[in-house]
Design a protein around this nucleic acid. Structure first.
Length: 724
DNA sequence: GACCTGCTGATTTTT
DNA sequence: TCAGCAGGTC
């Protein structure tokens, strides 16, 4: 193990101060690339050297991957045995772990199921149907988002019901109530419950809280700017006794407001802890001077921020290249061209990333890379664990642990087909309530309880129930390794056979094989493998964790997914008004500032070279629309940019005029563009989202704050263009 | 109850 | 453009 002095000598004065800081609340404002992870790891190692016991340390990170990385680094600093004892992970996974241990106190079993977004939405859809409310009245996905938002802000259904005024709010309140009731009946929690139930546990059981306060005497929180209200409250509770709360973050990198993150948590830390010490890490070790200067110039346009001055001793570096492209295919071609050049000059593929605002933008880029046979990894998109066949298999597995989970039952009851439709399900539901039986019990007694359905269906249901029972027992008693047992079980459900036989479904079949393979990997790498732990890991896995660390592949991902990472060469694509910033974000200052922070995060990922690009046209909803360069481009100092029009882009014009010219070139006389603010005589002020057609058929999709999205024929709707 | 077809809405970002 | 869903038919 390295000597303490040696490690401290590698740090700058501010970093050293943070690492060696004594007890009490500590706020570290860590600018992009300022060695945040290093400081966190060293500080934990420093505490351990000072004699703090590993089990007294809790480190909360934003992704499980970040936690793994930190643990890896710690292995080099302290004895692996001690590093392993640390509790390190996301809020969600750490709290899920606490809840497993304490579940009975809350009326749950330790085998409770964790519902992901899709599960929750599905449950809400079922409930709405039962309430006799159509999807057009209240969209299940929108309702899920709103309920999640309420839960993040710790607003219970009772509180919400009391304040509900409009009919829509009253329906939502009733849905919220039914949803909570059903979650409990299903022995299930959604993502938000993992936080809320932990808080409830602590508040209702002071003895339990005291136990965890004693245990976690030193608490670290990474990416503190992206914590929400519930996380904030949980931290207040946990840290109340020892007050050794060390939070690290950068308000300039807060990009999860839409998910309930509350930037006030970091802005108000010193108000919450008046005796808190503030340390600023302002030296950037990552980027060139030019990249940093451009990023800094951009972020200065935000009003809401903690004052700081990032600087670097790194070389000046090259100009930021701005690729002006004709459309998204041309953009992909240009990006490909420069990737090729990077590779030719010796940059490893793994040091290159292409970033974009929305997942949909990855397609043309993927195609270009595929054709050029350049290896790439795609982060996010439709995740492996979201695929239908995988979710079905996981639902079968969840039922082994938690047969109360109705969402999983409904997923698998007719997959493979067992002759069960809506009518049979309704009978099942009635039998459950009438005889006060569990779903599994009703299935087992299908022959006497479900007389109204076909005999074959009844037999199928009883066979399914027997299967679940048998493997439930096998799971607890069997000496067969978990992965083999699961393989046998999935075979017995008929799910594997369903896809194996069908030529068209080979991909699904292979995905299921891959699932078993990941389970085998888990079984072999874990000291005490359990289905419970495996399912939890899968449920709380973030997108970025699925991607194998590949040194020789270009990374494609959203700007959000890039948080916390760094690359030698970064491309940020689609810098167009309406895309970055997104059209709907231009309506409020807060949202616009978050879009700006998002671009800031992207730019500061780059070590040596940064490429920005925009397209003059882009396909959207099956039509090519005209795009205007992002306003953010004008916020970057022109002397740091080198505009490069592609050969197929509209005629080359100098950059500054390019920004303005391309806004009008080829454009209809109305001067509208996606992202433009317009006034409608009836609907009021709105934002243009898309344009199509010309002349008589010129149409615009406009989003109005209260009315929603409208398709307007401009011949009739006399829109007035508002200038900012 | 299964299958087919036509329609609609999606493109925000994710633990 | 396309996937997923609702509604209708067999």
């Amino acid at each position: 193990m390295p000597a303490v002095e040696e490690l401290l000598s590698q740090l700058n004065p501010q970093q050293r101060e943070a690492v060696t800081f004594g007890d009490g609340p500590l706020l570290i404002i860590a600018g992009a690339g300022s060695g945040k992870t290093r400081v966190l790891t060293y500080r934990i190692a420093y505490l351990l050297w000072r004699g703090v016991r590993a089990e007294h340390v809790l480190a909360l990170t934003f992704t499980n991957k970040a936690a793994e990385e930190m643990r890896e680094r710690l292995f080099g600093l302290v004895e692996p045995e001690r590093a392993r004892q640390l509790w390190m992970g996301t809020f969600h996974s750490i709290f899920a772990r606490i809840l497993r241990l304490e579940a009975p106190r809350l009326g749950y079993t330790p085998d409770y199921t964790i519902y992901d977004t899709e599960d929750s939405t599905g449950l809400l859809r079922t409930l709405l149907r039962q309430m006799g409310i159509g999807n057009h009245v209240l969209d299940p996905a929108a309702a899920r988002h709103q309920i999640s938002h309420l839960k993040n802000r710790m607003c219970s259904w009772q509180e919400f019901a009391a304040s509900a005024r409009t009919p829509r709010e009253r329906i939502l309140a009733e849905l919220y109530r039914a949803y909570e009731e059903q979650l409990r009946a299903n022995n299930a929690m959604d993502f938000d419950d993992l936080l809320l139930n932990t808080i409830r546990l602590f508040q209702a059981h002071p003895d339990v809280l005291a136990r965890y306060q004693e245990r976690f005497r030193y608490i670290f929180v990474d990416e503190y700017q992206d914590t929400n209200r519930a996380q904030y409250v949980a931290l207040q509770l946990l840290a109340a006794r020892y007050r050794n709360l060390c939070v690290v973050g950068d308000d300039a990198q807060s990009i999860y407001r839409w998910r309930g993150a509350d930037i006030r948590n970091i802005l108000d830390f010193q108000r919450d802890y008046p005796d808190a010490t503030l340390i600023r890490l302002e030296q950037n070790y990552r980027s060139t001077q030019r990249i940093l200067a451009a990023a800094d110039a951009l972020i200065r346009h935000n009003q809401q921020q903690i004052p700081k001055r990032l600087w670097t001793a790194n070389p000046e570096g090259e100009l930021i290249r701005l690729l002006i492209c004709a459309d998204e295919r041309d953009e992909a071609a240009q990006v490909l061209h420069y990737i090729q050049r990077e590779l030719d000059s010796g940059t490893p593929a793994g040091a290159i990333a292409v970033l974009y605002r929305t997942n949909a933008q990855s397609q043309p880029l993927e195609e270009a890379l595929r054709r050029a046979r350049i290896p790439y990894v795609l982060v996010g998109g439709i995740s492996f664990y979201q695929r239908k066949e995988i979710k079905d298999a996981l639902a079968y597995l969840r039922l082994l642990l938690n047969p109360a989970d109705m969402v999983s039952w409904l997923r698998v009851i007719n997959e493979p087909p067992r002759g069960i439709g809506a009518a049979t399900l309704e009978q099942l539901r009635q039998a459950m309530h009438q005889h006060n039986l569990s779903f599994l019990e009703v299935l087992e007694h299908a022959d006497t309880l479900l007389t109204g359905i076909r005999r074959s269906a009844r037999e199928n249901l009883q066979a399914l129930a027997a299967l679940i029972r048998r493997y439930r027992e096998a799971l607890h008693s069997s000496a067969v390794p978990l992965d083999l047992l699961v393989l046998e079980y999935l075979e017995a459900t008929g799910l594997l056979a369903l896809y194996r036989q069908d030529e068209q479904e080979q991909e699904r079949y292979m995905n299921l094989e891959r699932l078993i393979a990941t389970l085998s990997e888990y079984v072999q790498s874990s000291p005490a493998p359990s289905l419970r732990e495996y399912l939890q890991q899968v449920a709380l896995m973030s997108e970025s964790e699925l991607v194998p660390d590949s040194a020789d592949a270009v990374t494609l991902m959203t700007l959000h997914a890039a948080k916390g990472l760094e690359f030698s060469v970064v491309f940020i694509t689609g810098l167009e008004q309406g895309l970055l910033p997104l059209a709907r974000a231009t309506e409020s200052r807060e949202e616009l500032e978050e879009e700006r922070r998002l671009l800031y995060v992207g730019m500061t990922r780059a070590r040596e070279r940064l490429y920005l690009s925009y397209a003059q046209h882009r396909w959207r909803w099956g039509e090519s629309i005209l795009c205007r360069p992002s306003d953010f481009l004008q916020e970057l100092p022109p002397e740091l940019l080198e505009p490069i029009p592609s050969p197929t882009a509209a005629p080359g014009v100098p950059f500054q005029s390019a920004l303005r010219a391309s806004a009008t070139e080829g454009m209809e006389e109305d001067g509208l563009y996606p992202g433009a603010r317009v006034r409608h005589p009836v609907f009021g002020v709105g934002t243009v989202e898309a344009l199509s057609g010309s002349g008589e058929n010129r149409r615009a999709v406009v989003r109005f704050p209260h009315v929603g999205r409208k398709l307007l024929l401009l011949r009739y709707a006399r829109l007035q263009l508002l200038h900012r």
